[in-house]
Design a protein around this nucleic acid. Structure first.
Length: 566
RNA sequence: UGGGGCGUCGUCAAGUGGUAAGACACAGGAUUUUGGUUCCUGGAUUCGGAGGUUCGAAUCCUCCCGCCCCAGCCA
């Protein structure tokens, strides 16, 4: 089936590149990169960046590199590079043979540093970390120059080499750029270029005991890779003058940096720090918990790469801070799943219905359509018998005016089966709870059409009791409750107070049509009238699938109920 | 109170001097064996505010207001 790739809409980065192509600024070349730090899992905010970088490169017949910014061995691990690669691949992007690491360039970066020392533009500082901080000044006051700032080139060269040789303990000294301690831009107040870290690196092992800072590495890595458009988020805008300074001082290729606003989403968190707290404090089961906005979480929830890519195209790219409504993500998901997911009948909260005038010990097979949106997906047979299950919520003994499902005396259609009429209920004597509904059926309505043309207001899904397959189903809801503050500003309650205690509901004994016994991990289905479900690849066992609700169907009735409740 | 950004419908977002795209959400209606899908229809006399330039401004100028980022040897 044709996919639903959207035509690109105008955004300022696309416009810049298009203009560069027209003017031949980069000789028609477009080279971007997605530069994650391998210190955590990717989330949907990263997906935005991935789609921008890989998407723009593809659109303009360019290339996009995958580069790991692994300059801090104390935080980075191989496990993360593997998960990042898996996530980017899953999203549908291919970096071919262009898998790079900042650590690939450590030798070059070291040479760059020496070059700056030779040019008198870098020096070894022996101030402590605390001293450097206090010498830096504040937002409103200029900093002071380090007493070590005017060491000779020879001395700096010697000291830096000794740093590299491991002659100093961590923290003893650092290499700094000699720029301007009075700059109103704090990034220009002699930033640290190299620090001593006796940590083994996931790729270079113990080869180095000094590591470049992000600020000294990022721009040069982009330069080395011949990046034309260095796309990053807004918080790096203040660093741009510094990157420019390094590139100019080093006299090397100078990419153009373009900043855009990071993604924020309602009803969830996207900051790495908060995500870690959710995991570590046990609010979720892990980084791939289906409630998490991580790509691994969304994948396990049942999201499709196509839906996420379309979402990223629809949200646009701009420089203003914004928070996208989760409803848009869900819209993109349903749009994709509606076309592709086979329909099936499943009763989550079963209520038994006995059809009094249907023969006992009899079973017949009825034809059901697999996907009304795609006739090519064919049909299947489902069993029907005297006892069936319907959804508890589809029956009301004393219904309000707008409820038009089953209730005493009312006739409804059982999808693909018969019209049935409620003729009575059986209640628990003590609690008054409805235990069973008694109905009669009209044999003339087989398949769901009345020959006399009479209409019915509702069509219910159902599952034949004797053949029903029992399974566990998990219903997921948003991680966070709604906030009255539209934008998560300073005055919003601490996010933990907003955590939704009902983000997970586990249902067992759900009644599914028998064909689902063979559901395989990662299969997707639409449970008619309920939503889209995904067979969990971790918790399912052969013959015992566990279904995760990916997203509900749009539910007008639920909306009406919510409104009438006030 | 230093520097850097940003303010267009409830939420995203086009638009860059010629008279406010689109999407989601929302509200009506039609079709429907999923209260699903699909399909119509409705909505900013107005672009943070106030002045100014101009025949004409969301787009140019001035002032003001609000929000975000920066004081890691994190990225």
């Amino acid at each position: 089936m044709a996919s639903i790739d959207l035509k690109p809409a105008s955004n300022f980065i696309r416009n810049i590149i298009a203009e560069d192509q027209e003017t031949g600024k980069w000789d028609g070349r477009v080279q971007t990169r997605f530069p994650p730090e391998p210190n955590g899992y990717l989330h949907i905010g990263h997906a935005k960046s991935i789609c921008i970088n890989f998407g723009l490169a593809a659109e303009f017949k360019g290339r996009c590199n995958l580069r790991f910014d692994d300059t801090n061995p104390t935080k980075e691990e191989q496990e993360y590079v593997e998960s990042i690669k898996a996530d980017v691949r899953w999203l549908g992007f291919d970096w071919e043979d262009r898998e790079f690491y900042a650590s690939d360039y450590f030798d070059t970066l070291y040479a760059f540093a020496v070059d700056l020392i030779e040019k008198g533009k870098a020096y070894v500082d022996s101030l402590s970390a605390e001293e450097i901080r206090s010498y830096r000044g504040t937002l409103t006051e200029p900093g002071r120059e380090s007493p070590y700032r005017n060491r000779t080139v020879a001395e700096n060269r010697d000291l830096f080499e000794r740093m590299r040789n491991g002659e100093f303990p961590a923290g003893e000294c650092v290499l700094r750029a000699k720029i301007d301690m009075a700059s109103p831009n704090l990034n220009m107040r002699d930033p640290v270029m190299y620090r001593i870290l006796f940590a083994s690196h996931h790729r270079t092992g113990d080869k180095w005991c000094i590591y470049p800072t992000y600020d000294f590495a990022h721009g040069q890595c982009d330069s080395i890779e011949g990046i034309t458009h260095s796309i990053c988020t807004l918080e790096f805008e203040d660093h741009r003058p510094l990157y420019d300074w390094f590139l100019d001082a080093l006299e090397i290729h100078h990419p153009r940096q373009i900043e855009f606003a990071r993604l924020n989403l309602t009803r969830t968190v996207l900051s790495k720090r908060k995500l870690i707290r959710l995991v570590e404090e046990g609010y979720v089961t892990g980084w791939d918990d289906p409630r998490m906005p991580t790509l691994s979480g969304l994948r396990r929830r049942g999201y499709t790469p196509q839906a996420i890519r379309n979402f990223c195209e629809r949200i646009g790219v701009a420089r203003r801070d914004s928070t996208v409504d989760m409803a848009l993500l869900e819209y993109c998901l349903r749009e994709d799943l509606n076309r592709t997911a086979p329909r099936v009948m499943a009763v989550l909260r079963p209520l038994k219905v006995v059809i009094e005038n249907y023969p006992e010990n009899h079973t017949e097979m009825l034809k059901a359509v697999n996907n009304p949106e795609d006739p090519g997906m064919g049909t299947r047979q489902v069993p029907f018998s005297r006892e069936i299950y319907i959804e508890r919520g589809d029956f009301m003994e004393d219904p309000p005016k707008k409820f038009f499902r089953l209730s005493p005396g009312r006739e409804v259609r059982l999808r693909y089966a018969y019209f049935i009429t409620c003729v009575g209920v059986v209640k628990d004597e003590k609690t008054g709870e409805v235990k069973e509904v008694r109905c009669t059926y009209d044999p003339a309505t087989r398949g769901g059409d009345a020959p006399d043309g009479r209409k019915v207001k509702a069509t219910l899904h159902w599952v034949s009791a004797p053949q029903a397959f029992d399974a566990k189903v998990r219903l997921y809801d948003y991680l966070l409750n709604e906030t009255s503050e539209p934008d998560a500003g300073k005055d919003t309650p601490e996010f933990k107070e907003r955590i939704n205690p009902d983000s997970l509901t586990v249902l067992s004994g759900c009644k599914l049509e028998p064909g689902l016994a063979g559901a395989l991990p990662e299969n997707r289905y639409q449970f008619e009238r309920l939503g889209y479900f995904f067979v969990d690849p971790v918790d399912s066992a052969p013959g015992a699938p566990v279904f995760n609700r990916t997203v509900t169907l749009r539910d007008t009735w639920a909306k009406i109920q919510k409104q009438s409740r006030g």
